[in-house]
Nucleic acid binder design. Structure first.
Length: 436
DNA sequence: TCTGGGGTCCTAGGACCC
DNA sequence: TCTGGGGTCCTAGGACCC
């Protein structure tokens, strides 16, 4: 048995904890560069704002409907997430943190009324952290996801489902006929693993609701689509195919990519940008104790704007597997020099570290180039360790690779974030002060 | 004027091997 | 009249997730 605990409108809820005046108002959180909506309060959803709606298209709602738009404050959301996860873990013996606002809890061995237990944990998260959540409970992860969706919808749209399913929904506790009714009332596109494309295909075959999908023969689904969808159907039928993953493997690739605040044309600016991205990717790489053997750099112009378009990428092999930000930044800069072409307005660039291996694996080699040894650290260099410790303690970018251009007063490629709230929980100067 | 960022899994097809 | 069979590895692209 599994539970899925999911924060409601998570980013918006985080902001509301520190600005209660936002309660009851339409609020959205914008993506990097204040580009588009990535989180919406219920009131904002009711205004018809879609996930991913470009800000310039909905901006008029600020005046017309009192919409509040905030720049993304990922430092805040990450910290609130940690707090929420630690309380959600109290629901059962095992936990898989699936995303910043969701975790699966394994309920094996948990006795008693699961719905009552769910409400207790939900109330605790709301009181201690301030984040409203919904909890779905079921025999498989896919069903728990569905139960969570039902718990949320039942709360937000009264009448859509039986009222007692709101907030905490245990599908395993429903009588068969009630379960069928609930599945029939749910669109097949709401199932975890059924995206826009497959949803459309299923509907063309007459499979409209979750109940229709549950009644399909898994082998038929496999023949008509693929094994992934077959697993989804089996899971919906109550047969577990996806295990709880409470000790995730290290990532197989690590990316750092950004859109620029404004178009960038100059090589120097692009080199600064990808040096910075490579250095940031290096931090993530060291955190999971891996080395990279290859690095991919890319850049492209904006498909949404007029003018000549260009999209290029190059793979840069590294001399030997490394986690050293200096070497990664250098490789990224080399790649950029190789692929750069003048005359284009670039809007995005990025670095992806691929072909990763554990840092514990060491390929020995003959010392054929002893004069280069000093520049090619073989172990995690003490410098990188010191750099990470200082940046952890005094803030990101306190110590950085020189080629990233942080000494320049204004970075040509910097991000636009005009509406960001303070880092209430992670920066001493930003901690709210209570006055009597 | 203006549209995010970071991942995973699966499959088909080509290269290559014996 | 006539061109083997079986296997692995790698890559690109598609679909999905939040």
């Amino acid at each position: 048995m599994y539970a899925l605990v999911d924060g409601n409108n998570f980013y918006v809820s985080c902001e509301r904890v520190f600005r209660p005046s936002l309660n009851g108002r339409p609020v959205i959180v914008l993506s990097n560069n204040d580009g588009c909506a990535i989180a919406r309060s219920n009131e904002a959803k009711d205004l018809g704002i879609c996930m991913g709606a470009p800000w310039f298209q909905i901006r008029h709602l600020e005046q017309q409907a009192g919409l509040v738009a905030l720049s993304a404050n990922f430092t805040l959301y990450g910290d609130m997430s940690d707090r929420m996860m630690s309380l959600a873990a109290g629901l059962g013996p095992t936990q898989e943190i699936y995303s910043i606002d969701e975790s699966f809890i394994g309920l094996n061995g948990v006795r008693g009324d699961l719905v009552a237990r769910g409400h207790k944990v939900r109330d605790r998260i709301l009181q201690w952290i301030g984040i409203p959540t919904c909890i779905g409970i079921a025999p498989t992860k896919t069903m728990a996801k569905l139960a969570n969706h039902i718990a949320k919808t039942a709360e937000r749209k009264p009448g859509s489902y039986p009222a007692e399913l709101a907030q905490v929904c245990n599908l395993a506790a429903l009588p068969a006929q009630d379960l069928d009714d609930v599945l029939q009332a749910t669109d097949v596109g709401d199932v975890w693993g059924v995206g826009r494309r497959i949803s459309k295909q299923l509907k063309e075959q007459g499979i409209q609701t979750v109940l229709d999908l549950v009644r399909m023969d898994p082998a038929t689904i496999r023949r008509g689509w693929n094994v992934t969808l077959e697993k989804t159907v089996k899971e919906l039928q109550g047969q577990p195919c996806v295990d709880l993953d409470d000790a995730p493997e290290p990532k197989q690739q690590i990316a750092c990519t950004r859109s620029f605040g404004q178009p960038v044309t100059k090589l120097e600016s692009l080199i600064e940008a990808v040096s910075e991205f490579a250095s940031r990717a290096g931090e993530k790489l060291r955190k999971q104790n891996s080395l990279a053997r290859e690095l991919l750099v890319f850049m492209h112009t904006s498909p949404h704007r007029q003018g000549p378009q260009l999209s290029r990428s190059v793979v840069v092999p590294l001399r030997r597997p490394t986690d050293d930000s200096r070497l990664l930044a250098g490789a990224a800069a080399d790649g950029m020099r190789r692929m750069y072409l003048a005359g284009y307005r670039f809007i995005k660039a990025g670095v992806i570290l691929v072909d990763l291996q554990p840092a514990s694996v060491q390929q020995q080699e003959l010392d054929l180039e002893p004069e280069q040894e000093a520049e090619m650290p073989r172990d995690r260099s003490r410098l990188m360790v010191a750099m990470d410790v200082i940046n952890q303690r005094y803030g990101k970018g306190t110590v950085h690779v020189g080629s990233t251009g942080q000494t320049v007063p204004v970075r040509a490629w910097g991000m636009k974030q005009e509406r960001r709230t303070p880092q209430y929980t992670t920066r001493l100067e930003d901690v709210p002060v209570v006055r009597a």
